[in-house]
Amino acid sequence: MRRLVIALVVLLAVGACGVTIPTDPDGTLDRVRGGTLRVGVSPNSPWTDLPKGTDADPVGIEVELVQEFAETLDAEIVWVPGGEEELITELEHGYLDMVIGGLTARSPWSSKVALTYRYTVTTNVYGQEEQHVMAVPMGENAFQAELERLLFDQDLPV
């Protein structure tokens, strides 16, 4: 009973301070909304692909999801192509807002960045289940929650 009372007091104190949950310590969602969404994209067809020899935007399943997400935020997208390691480092240091490229929940980058909840499940050539995710900055929970709201509503034919 005592723990319940303490928990209620803490909850009321936090609520009285005007703290909203989830929150973004670095303000990613507020900065991106009506602004620019910086997206690192690593080629991994059919999730992402970079047309060769042109300045065209990337294409693929995840590219379309990001475009839809950007529309909900009234944000312009700046695509940053590269390899996973380079892009994850840029995300980790705040130069990108998200990274896409067919990442799965088994990603070795999960200790450096946050991975969204899986938005689709596929089976790889070895018969193993792959839960597909996107990478976002660690701790930017409001931004991640907004993205996941869109991802939860997907019915991907993959």
Rank of each mutant, 00 (worst) to 15 (best):
T48M: 11
E90P: 05
V39C: 14
C17A: 15
I100T: 05
R3A: 14
G27Q: 06
D49Q: 13
W79R: 03
L151H: 09
L150H: 11
D155R: 15
V78K: 02
P81H: 11
Q67A: 10
T120Q: 09
R106Y: 05
P46H: 13
F69S: 00
P58W: 01
Q128L: 10
P137L: 04
V10K: 10
T28C: 12
V59W: 02
V9D: 11
G53D: 01
V99R: 02
E68L: 11
W79G: 06
T123C: 10
G35K: 09
L11D: 13
N141Y: 10
G34V: 01
P51M: 11
A7P: 07
Q131P: 05
L12M: 13
N44H: 14
I88N: 03
F69W: 06
W47H: 11
S45W: 15
V41S: 11
R31P: 04
T122Q: 08
W79H: 04
Q131G: 05
G127Y: 12
V32R: 00
E92I: 05
V39N: 13
P22Q: 07
E76G: 01
T120L: 13
V5T: 02
V14A: 11
R31G: 00
T122K: 03
P137Q: 08
E62Y: 11
S107A: 03
A56L: 02
T89E: 15
L151Y: 11
T48G: 00
P43W: 08
A135Q: 02
V66K: 03
G35S: 03
D30E: 09
N141K: 02
L96T: 14
L150F: 11
V158N: 08
D155C: 07
T89K: 15
Y119M: 08
T89M: 14
S107G: 00
M98N: 12
G35R: 00
Y117K: 13
K52I: 06
F152W: 12
T23K: 01
G40E: 01
